[in-house]
Lab assay of single mutants.
Amino acid sequence: MGFKLLSKLLVYLTASIMAIASPLAFSVDSSGEYPTVSEIPVGEVRLYQIADGVWSHIATQSFDGAVYPSNGLIVRDGDELLLIDTAWGAKNTAALLAEIEKQIGLPVTRAVSTHFHDDRVGGVDVLRAAGVATYASPSTRRLAEVEGNEIPTHSLEGLSSSGDAVRFGPVELFYPGAAHSTDNLIVYVPSASVLYGGCAIYELSRTSAGNVADADLAEWPTSIERIQQHYPEAQFVIPGHGLPGGLDLLKHTTNVVKAHTNRSVVE
């Protein structure tokens, strides 16, 4: 069995187990497998329904001669939608809004960016022009300005110390501490036991640490421990890039980060 097929099978099995364990909360999309990078042309966006009122959005972007996937989250909030992270750029984010209108038909009224990198804030200006209120932590807003990236308009308070959590509509926002970046936030959907790890969490097929220019490698494993301790009931975990899975993604990420750190020390 090929690795790609095995990865998709694991996603399907995880979703099936969740649907059985929580039949009222989960209505997993039966329309197909989780979209992969090879299936999404740059400039297009796919939506994948995880649970009743919960979707991931998947886009792709060219970077350094390669094409990478990027995940975000959409959560229903009454007759409105909360968006977590842009679709990595203005063109993708405009396509995301169009796809949401086509498939869901509810307005996106608020959006949260989970850290300051372009795959999370690139497209904020498109959201703002569409009347979406954009939010991020003060740290993310400051770092985005320093980096020359787009800056969300509103500040999220109460997320300055490791372990801080605040309720934001249908989700809980959690600051686990520094990891992929010093400002990275985690998003949890309690009604569906869905954990969105953003770039602080890796997919299972990833074996290298990737972009760690703004990471705190020493603190990252401790931050992941905080996530595990705060959300032990999480059933569906979405990484910032690639295929979702279960809580095993947290341990896998820790292993990859520690291996990278150990290699760096040896070198």
Rank of each mutant, 00 (worst) to 15 (best):
G2T: 07
G2K: 11
F3H: 07
F3D: 07
F3T: 10
K4R: 06
L6A: 14
L6E: 15
S7C: 14
L9W: 14
L10V: 14
Y12Q: 09
Y12N: 11
L13V: 15
L13E: 07
L13D: 05
A15C: 14
A15I: 14
A15N: 11
I17C: 13
I17A: 13
M18C: 13
A19R: 13
I20E: 15
S22P: 14
S22Q: 12
P23G: 10
L24E: 13
L24Y: 15
F26T: 11
F26H: 11
D29R: 11
S31N: 10
S31Y: 12
S31T: 12
S31F: 10
E33P: 10
T36P: 13
V37Y: 15
S38W: 12
I40T: 11
P41M: 13
V42F: 08
V42Y: 08
V42T: 13
G43R: 07
G43A: 06
E44H: 12
E44R: 13
R46K: 10
R46Q: 09
L47M: 09
Y48H: 12
Q49V: 11
I50C: 03
I50S: 03
D52V: 11
V54C: 04
V54A: 06
S56N: 15
H57R: 04
T60G: 09
S62W: 07
F63D: 14
G65I: 08
A66L: 15
A66W: 07
V67Y: 15
V67T: 15
Y68G: 06
P69A: 15
P69C: 07
N71D: 05
N71S: 06
G72H: 01
L73Y: 00
L73P: 06
L73W: 01
L73D: 00
I74L: 08
I74W: 02
V75S: 03
V75T: 05
G78S: 09
G78I: 08
G78C: 06
E80L: 05
L81C: 04
L82S: 03
L83S: 02
L83D: 02
I84N: 04
I84D: 00
T86W: 00
A90L: 06
A90P: 13
K91P: 12
K91F: 08
K91I: 13
T93D: 00
A94E: 14
A95H: 15
L96C: 01
A98L: 13
E99I: 12
E101F: 08
K102N: 12
Q103V: 13
G105C: 06
G105M: 10
G105I: 02
L106Y: 10
P107K: 15
V108F: 02
R110H: 11
R110D: 02
A111S: 14
A111D: 03
A111V: 06
S113L: 05
S113I: 05
T114Q: 00
H115W: 00
H115T: 01
D118T: 09
D119L: 01
V121P: 03
G122K: 08
G123W: 05
G123S: 04
V126R: 06
V126D: 05
V126S: 06
V126N: 04
L127S: 00
L127R: 02
R128V: 10
R128H: 12
R128E: 13
A130W: 09
V132L: 03
V132M: 05
A133L: 13
A133E: 14
T134P: 01
T134S: 06
T134G: 00
T134N: 01
T134L: 01
A136L: 03
A136Q: 03
P138S: 09
R141Q: 13
R142L: 14
A144S: 08
A144H: 04
A144P: 04
E145P: 05
V146Q: 14
V146C: 09
V146G: 13
V146K: 14
E147A: 14
E147Y: 15
G148L: 05
G148Q: 08
N149W: 05
N149C: 06
I151Y: 05
I151P: 04
P152L: 03
P152M: 00
T153N: 09
H154A: 06
H154G: 07
H154P: 04
H154C: 05
E157F: 11
G158Q: 08
S160P: 07
S162P: 15
A165N: 12
V166H: 07
V166K: 09
F168K: 02
G169H: 07
V171C: 02
E172P: 02
F174K: 00
F174R: 01
Y175A: 00
Y175L: 00
Y175F: 11
P176E: 00
P176W: 00
G177C: 05
A179T: 08
H180T: 01
H180M: 02
H180I: 01
S181M: 01
S181Y: 04
T182N: 12
T182E: 13
D183Y: 05
D183S: 01
V189W: 01
P190A: 09
A192T: 10
A192Y: 07
V194Y: 05
A200K: 03
A200R: 01
A200I: 09
I201Q: 02
E203Q: 06
L204Y: 09
S205L: 09
R206M: 15
R206A: 15
G210N: 05
N211H: 07
V212S: 12
A213Y: 08
D214R: 05
D214K: 05
A215V: 06
L217R: 04
A218W: 10
E219A: 13
E219S: 12
E219W: 04
E219K: 08
W220C: 05
P221Q: 09
T222P: 08
T222H: 14
S223D: 02
S223W: 00
I224S: 01
I224R: 01
E225L: 12
I227N: 07
I227W: 02
Q229V: 13
Y231R: 00
E233I: 09
Q235G: 08
F236V: 11
V237H: 00
H241Q: 05
H241P: 04
H241Y: 06
G242M: 02
L243S: 15
L243E: 15
G245F: 00
G245R: 02
G245Y: 03
L249F: 06
L249P: 00
L250N: 02
L250M: 07
K251Q: 15
K251V: 12
K251T: 13
T254D: 11
N255F: 10
V256I: 12
V257F: 04
H260Q: 12
H260D: 11
R263Y: 10
R263M: 14
S264L: 11
V266G: 14
E267T: 06
E267F: 09
E267C: 03
